[in-house]
Design a protein around this nucleic acid. Structure first.
Length: 474
DNA sequence: CTATGGCACGGATT
DNA sequence: AATCCGTGCCATAG
């Protein structure tokens, strides 16, 4: 699909330009919504079945080549970049643990429901019993409400306040956070069990309430900015969230028993891009998957175009509008894909060692430089980079903008120096150590970097460890 | 007195 | 034009 000549992809109209830009900023999840709504409202759009590689069942790229099976042919280190259609499964609900242990039997929801009903028996007014049972039996596999409380109220012919009351009761039962509207609300419910005077708890609450999206993207800098809380505090709070809270409380009931609150970053977010090692030759070219929301390929329905011919007056103009809209949308989508692909090709081949060896190896680039290399406007790069996250071969998920972080490698060195220090080094001494490595930074700057990394000042580093908050066992 | 963090300024980046 | 980043200056905590 993207072998179309670049010429034809050039923006032709201002409308085209504007929409291409607006699509480019979107993360994959956001694009998904956009595509879904477009697809369902515009009959001129058609979704083509994806073609699947006969041997490995991976989706083929538009040229009909299987990106994985052709890996063996790849001799040089140029990255292999391709678009990878995302499963049609809702990413926020179902998390795909790639190659993780075979699905354990989820406990039958009835068990969970019975369990909770027993816990609640004492507190439950007789007239609420049926309502509680109704709610508990209507939960989905993850223990979340499928219907809005107002709907439940109507279905049972009871006031909304009563439903709310019962929901609150259930939320306090074990496992905490069950019967909420989603992961976000589940986390908040669990947070209620902690002492809100603890700073980490208070911060966590705000993080979840106000910057949940950024949390999923692990974009700590953005959270810090938005909430006006220093980054190291944010890190502490996020650690707390990961250690002590579980966004999918019902999953603790899976299998034999308690599954430790997972630290799998995928729970919170699925990345927009995945970079992995070549499975055939781990030292060879890197494999880059750019996820797309479609499991197939979008195009303008040729039948629709034909039907245009024998339409009359009003209908014809209606249809031609839709047709135009569809054509524009498809073009813009192609443009977006094309830009993302070229960006990643460039980024991954330039920063190969960073991706494989870690933060230290990042050679700082600016968006402007990249823009010049792949010949687009720099604002285009800005848009392409923002709101995207990347999964690296080691499993970390980082914001794509990290590739443009000029201070990352220095911060990494500082981390190492402090880690290996015999006794606490002052910022001034760290400056000297760095200058031995040929890095000259001001003392003040070292202090800033420390703060970003959440490292305490020398004086406090001496003995005490950061107080640890006991994890809740569910 | 020393090590640090806050504020703010200027230059670079977006 | 708006934002980000490194840095210098200064107040303050230890």
């Amino acid at each position: 699909m993207f072998q179309v000549q670049d010429q034809s992809l050039r923006p032709m109209t201002t409308a085209h330009l504007a929409q291409t830009m607006s699509l480019l900023v979107l993360s994959n999840a956001e694009l998904q919504e956009k595509v879904d709504s477009e697809l369902s409202t515009n009959p001129a759009l058609e979704l083509l079945e994806e073609r699947v590689c006969p041997s490995c069942h991976r989706p083929l790229d538009p040229k009909g080549i299987c990106p994985i099976c052709s890996l063996g042919d790849h001799k040089d280190l140029e990255p292999i970049v391709f678009l990878s259609p995302r499963d049609s499964v809702q990413p926020t609900r179902k998390i795909s643990y790639d190659d993780s242990p075979p699905d354990q039997e989820p406990a039958a929801p009835e068990n969970l429901a019975m369990n909770i009903l027993q816990q609640l028996a004492a507190d439950l007014q007789p007239q609420d019993r049926n309502l509680a049972a109704y709610i508990l039996s209507s939960l989905d596999d993850d223990g979340f409400l499928q219907d809005h409380p107002a709907f439940i109220a109507r279905a049972n012919r009871v006031p909304l306040s009563q439903v709310q009351h019962v929901l609150d009761l259930i939320a306090q039962a074990d496992p905490p956070g069950i019967a909420t509207m989603g992961p976000r609300e589940a986390l908040l419910a669990q947070l209620e069990l902690f002492d809100s005077r603890l700073p980490s708890v208070a911060h966590s609450k705000r993080i979840i309430q106000e910057t949940f999206k950024e949390l999923g993207r692990r974009d700590f800098e953005a959270i810090s900015r938005k909430l006006n809380i220093p980054v190291h505090k944010i890190r502490q709070a996020v650690n707390f969230i990961q250690d002590s809270l579980n966004p999918y409380p019902a999953r603790a009931f899976w299998g034999s028993g308690y599954q430790p609150a997972t630290t799998d970053p995928n729970v919170y977010h699925t990345p927009d891009i995945r970079i992995s090692r070549n499975p055939i030759n781990p030292e060879g070219a890197l494999v880059v998957e750019i996820f797309t929301p479609l499991s197939g390929w979008l195009r303008v329905n040729p039948l629709f175009r034909k039907a245009m011919g024998n339409a009359n007056g009003e209908q014809a103009s209606e249809w031609s509008k839709q047709l135009e809209r569809a054509t524009l949308f498809v073009k813009c989508l192609q443009q977006r894909n094309n830009t993302m692909r070229r960006l990643m090709e460039m980024l991954v081949s330039e920063q190969r060692t960073f991706i494989l060896k870690g933060d230290r190896q990042l050679s700082p680039m600016t968006r402007a430089e990249v823009a010049e290399k792949i010949d687009v406007h720099e604002s285009t790069i800005s848009r392409a980079v923002s709101h995207k996250s990347v999964e690296l071969p080691d499993g970390r998920i980082i914001p794509l903008s990290r590739f443009f972080d000029r201070s990352l490698s220095v911060r990494d060195r500082i981390k190492e120096i402090i880690h290996n220090e015999k006794r606490p080094l002052t910022d001034e001494q760290i400056v000297e150590k760095l200058s031995c490595d040929g890095i000259s930074v001001a003392r003040r700057t070292v202090a800033k970097y420390r703060s970003i990394e959440g490292i305490l000042p020398a004086r406090l580093r001496h003995k005490k460890r950061i107080p640890r908050i006991a994890a809740v066992r569910v």
